[in-house]
Simulated scan of single mutants.
Amino acid sequence: MTIAFFQKLAQFLNQGAATLATVVDITGSVPREIGAKILVNDRGEVFDTIGGGAGEAKVIRHALEVLKTGDSQFVEIDLSGAAHRQVQGVCGGMMRVWLARWQGEAAIALVRETIETLQAGKSLTLVTPYDSGTVPYLLDHPVQADRLLENAFVELLHPAPILLIIGAGHCGIQLAKVAQLLDFQVMVQDDRPDWANPVRYPNVARIFTESAQDVIAQLGHWSHLYAALVTRGFQYDIQALRALLALPMPCHYIGMIGSQKRVQRVLKAIELELHLARARSQSPIIYAPIGLDIGALTPAEIAVSIAAELVMVRRGGSGYPLSVI
């Protein structure tokens, strides 16, 4: 989950109680993954989604009951489409959702610690017991993956990935807008203050006007780093790529804008760095030219193309059309 989700939870808790509903098990085709969450407060306000439709409406109804009684419960969402059962959809699968009321100083302190840890770029483990009498808590050590236990749901929470946009031109402006919708922590680097400034980038996490090499060195400790090179010239690509390939922890994603000719020239210039990275058992994939082929021409369309590729890499998608017809 994102920092924004826990910030909203903190806001709700400062105003009263809230029900936190978490998808803890799924089978078959469903609209959301294990760990997806939704918040409902005692004024009936809802934040985020576990898939919408009749299934989510059912969870919201039960969440309001949990707020009144304090009794945690499981809610089953039947999306099988079976004619002989009362179903909430026809996706084909099932979702199991755990609903628990959060309230009071202990819950506020836990949420505050969660936010501070994620903002520091660290992962943490949240344990949600399936017992109304036991409050959620954080573990001192991480677990390997989200998993369903017999008496508790244990999930590893990661900080929002950083998207470092190198180059603050027209494509960078549009990419920042789209990436923020995708819950990336967006940072921008360009040595031109006339371009890299809060007027052009009003909502990004950081703006850097130092060299790309210096900025990359500062962010090298971050475990979820994505880099999009949308620079004004291939020499800037070469400088940035050399710094990215030298990081001790490889980037999750490196993408570079440019024509086939420009891309080949840059890759030729960094052959040694690529060889050294592979010798360190790091096999970086440089997505160049950047983005998925959707026929993009304008800066906004190019930003959508890049963002689609970012999601593909982050979620493990194929990039192929979903159409079955």
Rank of each mutant, 00 (worst) to 15 (best):
L13E: 06
V75A: 14
A145R: 13
T19Q: 00
R200Y: 02
V135G: 13
A57N: 12
Q88P: 10
D214Y: 05
L13W: 03
G89L: 03
R192A: 01
F47Q: 03
L267Q: 13
S132R: 03
F6Y: 10
R315N: 15
S80E: 02
L157S: 15
Q185I: 04
V143Q: 05
P198C: 03
L229C: 14
Q7M: 03
G220T: 08
P161I: 03
V313E: 12
R265E: 12
M312T: 05
D25P: 08
I325W: 15
A240D: 01
R192K: 09
A82W: 12
H252P: 04
A227I: 01
Y201L: 05
G317V: 00
D191Y: 10
Q282S: 13
L110F: 11
A296N: 00
P202Y: 02
K58M: 09
W195A: 05
Y226I: 04
I166T: 11
N14Q: 15
L164W: 06
H141S: 14
I302L: 04
V23L: 14
Q189T: 13
G317Y: 08
V178E: 05
A160E: 14
L163W: 10
M94A: 04
I165S: 12
K8E: 13
P299H: 10
T298S: 15
V87E: 05
E105Q: 13
I302Y: 07
F5V: 10
V186L: 05
L181E: 13
L245C: 08
D293M: 10
L13K: 05
V178F: 07
T69D: 11
A4N: 15
V304P: 04
K122F: 05
H170V: 06
A179V: 01
I207R: 01
V266Y: 00
S72F: 04
M187L: 02
I306R: 11
K68E: 13
A109N: 14
V46L: 08
V215T: 11
K8T: 11
G172N: 05
G28L: 07
V324A: 09
H221Y: 11
A106Q: 12
Q103Y: 15
H221I: 02
W98S: 13
Q189C: 09
V199W: 09
Q7G: 01
I3M: 07
Y320C: 13
I166L: 15
I257R: 10
C91N: 04
I216S: 00
H62D: 10
D146R: 04
S323T: 09
T117R: 05
Y236P: 01
Y201D: 01
A308G: 14
A107I: 13
M312R: 15
P161A: 00
Q88V: 07
L99W: 11
Q180R: 14
R280Q: 14
T27F: 11
G316E: 12
I60T: 12
V266L: 04
R314F: 06
E113N: 10
W222K: 15
L13I: 03
F5I: 14
A196P: 02
D146N: 12
L267I: 06
T19E: 07
M256Y: 01
P159Y: 06
G316N: 00
A179I: 03
G104T: 09
N151S: 00
V263Y: 03
V75K: 11
I34E: 15
G172I: 03
L175I: 07
V75D: 13
T231Q: 08
R262M: 03
M249Q: 13
G93F: 06
A168L: 08
W98P: 09
